[in-house]
Amino acid sequence: MGLYMVKRILQSIPLLLAVSFFTFAFIQLSPMDPAEVVLHAQGVPKITDELIAETKTALGMDQPFLVRYSNWLASCLQFDFGSSYITGKPVWSQLGPALFNTIKLTVVSVAAIIAVSIGFGVYCAWRAGKMIDRSLRGLFFFLTSMPSYWLGTLMIWYFSVKLDLLPTSGMDSYRSYILPVALITVSYAGIYFRIIRSSVLSNMNEDYAMYGRACGLPEKKVRARIVRNSLQVAVSVFCMAVPIILGSTVVVENIFAWPGLGTLSVNAILGRDFPVIQAYVLVLAAAFVLFNTASDILNAALNPKLRNDRS
């Protein structure tokens, strides 16, 4: 198992390198000249060709592509993503706190999604085909299909404005988490709930459940076996849910003015702040690779067959 972990972690290094290369290369394809963006941001009234050339030299943009890439990569490894073109501050000083805020929202949301989808998924599988199962599936389908910006606005109107129970925006106390977390949970739990439900249903028909019952094991023990085996599918699904939600909080953060990556990235894209965009894409891509690796390792730890085949 230890060997497999080391192997899997080592395998993710070339992938991370490839991700960093493409992130850097795609930003270079942008039609906007970064030097012009910097000069605009600094409020320079008249942008001349000499000024652009000087700025390019100052930013190191006159060097060949591979030299710029390796310099950028070496800095990134030390969490130095350069300076923002707009504010002039180091990117990490903006990205770090925003990332931390988004992680806080993501962790609470993923925990809520796991609780809701496992709880309802298992419950509905035991009652498959009954009225309660059909009603819950219908409700989740309805909620998942509603656009989150519309549902979020409705939530703010009802819970914050009409009932005056919760704050409309910001990140002041635990109460600020309730609406954004509820919105993300409602949007995603429907998908994960279905995966859990069908995994439990297919395990219920497995021979080991029948043999357990045939040996006189109590229903509670048989069901515990079914749930444990069903959740193996869920582990990888939930691991991948973390980066997906990390990347898709843009809408939710903008609705609730959450000071996270979503808000930061939208502002960076609108202002053509390339170092911030680059860092944002790199951090998210790295999160995908890391969580994918974590999911593989966790799966191997839970599934003895995978563990033996791969170690």
Binding site: E206, D207, Y208, M210, Y211, G212, R213, A214, C215, G216, L217, P218, E219, R225, R228, N229, Q232, L302, N303, P304, K305
Partner: peptide, 22 residues
């Protein structure tokens, strides 16, 4: 349930699938 296993025992077709895989 108490009769199963104790008074009536079953032997399944697929040994490989009859036991909890984890």
């Amino acid at each position: 349930r108490r009769r199963r296993g104790r008074r009536l025992c079953m032997i399944m077709q697929h040994g490989m699938r009859a036991f909890d895989p984890s």
